[in-house]
């Protein structure tokens, strides 16, 4: 069963990466990367069990915290004007408004 869970999580990670590459806006990419991070936490804990090394859980805890901090940091950064005017964002805004 652990193998099935690992495969499912890996498939979801591939899907998240696909979304991160497809875009179309910056925020879709951040959402995909955030999802990728939470799946990594799950993958590390399941892998720890599959390999019989529960010490991996400590790494999973640390990774959960780092993932949260990085998402919040990128979002704070995006409030500044640097990211606002990427080409895809402009196109998407025109399409929606």
């Amino acid at each position: 069963m652990l193998t099935a869970a690992i495969i499912a999580i890996l498939v979801v990670m591939i899907m998240a990466i696909t979304r991160a590459i497809m875009g179309p806006t910056l925020y879709d990419r951040i959402l995909a990367v955030n999802m990728f991070g939470t799946k990594t936490v799950l993958l590390i804990s399941v892998l720890g069990f599959a390999m019989g090394r529960p010490e991996f859980l400590d790494i999973a805890i640390v990774y959960a915290l780092i993932n949260f901090i990085s998402v919040i940091a990128v979002l704070r950064h995006s409030d500044k004007s640097i990211f606002k005017t990427t080409q895809a964002d402009k196109k998407s805004m025109q399409r929606h408004s």
Binding site: A64, V71, I72, L75, D79, D89, M93
Partner: peptide, 19 residues
């Protein structure tokens, strides 16, 4: 963490004009 992150994401997207 997950509700905080999604709230921050939605809010940042709204503020920066994504409708």
């Amino acid at each position: 963490i997950s509700p905080t992150a999604s709230h921050a994401l939605a809010r940042a997207a709204m503020i920066n004009g994504l409708k």
